[in-house]
Computed example of a mutant assay.
Amino acid sequence: MNLKKIAAIISVVVITGLMIYGYLLYRAIFASNTNFQTEQVYVEIPTDSDYDQVKTIMAAYVKDMDRFEKVAEKKDYPSRQEKAGRFLLKKGMNSNEIVNALRQNVPVNIAFNNQERLENFAGRIASQIEADSLSLLKSFTDDKFLQENGFTKENVLAMFVPNSYEFFWNTSAEKFRNKMLKEYHKFWTDERLEKAKKLNLTPIQVSILASIVHKETVKTDERPKVAGVYLNRLAKGMKLEADPTVIYAVKLQDNDFNKVIKRVLNKDLATPSAYNTYMYAGLPPGPIAMPDITALDAVLNPEQHNFIYFCASVTRFGYHEFAVTPAQHEGNRLKYVAWISSQGIKR
């Protein structure tokens, strides 16, 4: 066999080998390598995870782990220090795209409202980020944090203004708390602080009163009117006598916040609690729920009127009937008592 034929054969072998290698390389990098049927999935990788832990997690979403690992190593992913986060994988991604996706921590939009206690709130947040409810609760009630920022364990719920916020999934409890403190100060603009000052209320006191208004009515257009009633009572030195505070006191006493109370009974009014505004004058020691922004702004922008009393309406359900005198209020109250009794509601 002459040299030309040998050279030709060698060339064919080399070219064939290169083609096979190229195909395998292309397949490893650019061929689809996902193993899920939905259009997309979010993968959560815990804090302090190493490369082996990442591979264990990814095995559920990747069709061929050898192909994935080859690309990951070529792209120097195993040496990456920070691997934790929430990552978006799309159906049909190739290994190269999957590794790129694992470098892009996708934020979480966290929303919350109407939480009655810190414990409920911590549980709500824990369902949306990596931090667990116990670590969140511990950070919220840290003595040093509370003292430095003018809160107590009873009123720190006022710090969390219901809205939608963007966080990374792997945000720690302390970072979440500190970000919410910044949002709290951002909410309390100079304009809002000035309005609170004119009412002789601190921001925390506004939040406490707003929590009562929030619980009294779901009708946002009625909240400024209800806020005006309570501010009128405070100005006259009257007790607030707010049913939602009694309901909170009963739940707190029974340690049962899943209890549904549709009707406040006379015996409930005697519940010994600082939250019972039938027994104690002034505001309770903390919010009885997390007031939303409409309730907060209702207190800051109350309707100006002379009403001192209000009672649930039996003709405009969801709204209330307002009164200036005890006699007017008693008439409204008797109508409501008759209606609720006719509905068979005893508790």
Rank of each mutant, 00 (worst) to 15 (best):
A227E: 01
K259M: 13
A59P: 10
N109Q: 13
K262G: 03
A338D: 14
Q115W: 09
L201C: 11
T245M: 14
C311N: 13
G123R: 02
G228M: 14
L234E: 01
W188P: 09
G123S: 10
P287A: 13
T220H: 05
I340V: 15
T325P: 01
I308G: 00
A295K: 11
R347C: 03
K153G: 02
I45L: 08
I345T: 08
K239G: 06
Q343C: 04
K63H: 08
K138V: 04
Y23D: 04
A338K: 15
A210Q: 13
G228Y: 02
L193M: 12
N306M: 11
P284K: 11
G286L: 08
H214L: 10
A126F: 10
I110E: 02
N170S: 13
I345F: 06
G22E: 03
E183F: 05
E321H: 06
G92R: 09
T202E: 08
Q104C: 05
N200D: 04
Y280D: 05
R27D: 15
M19C: 12
S139Y: 01
L3F: 10
V12N: 02
R263V: 07
Y309E: 02
Q37H: 11
K144W: 00
N149Q: 07
A173T: 15
F167K: 08
Y77L: 10
V264M: 03
E222L: 11
E116F: 00
G282Y: 02
S342E: 12
L18Y: 08
E97N: 09
A7R: 14
P224F: 01
I9Q: 05
L265N: 06
F167M: 01
R347Q: 14
Y165P: 10
L18F: 10
S139N: 04
L193P: 06
A338C: 08
V156T: 09
T325I: 02
E69T: 10
A72D: 08
N232L: 12
L118G: 00
C311V: 11
T217F: 09
D268H: 15
K262P: 00
P107D: 01
R263K: 15
E222C: 06
Q53D: 13
I10P: 01
I288P: 07
G344K: 14
G85R: 00
E39R: 12
T34Q: 02
K236I: 03
R192Y: 11
L134S: 05
V156N: 01
I208C: 06
L296I: 07
W339D: 14
R103C: 05
L102P: 02
D190R: 15
A249H: 10
V337I: 13
F68D: 03
Q115M: 12
E69Q: 09
I293R: 15
D64S: 12
A28K: 04
K335Y: 04
K186R: 14
D52I: 06
D292N: 07
A249T: 06
A281H: 12
E116H: 09
R67V: 02
P244F: 01
N200Q: 09
V99E: 11
L24N: 06
K144V: 08
F257N: 07
I293E: 13
V213N: 08
N120A: 04
V324W: 00
N33F: 08
N96A: 08
R347F: 10
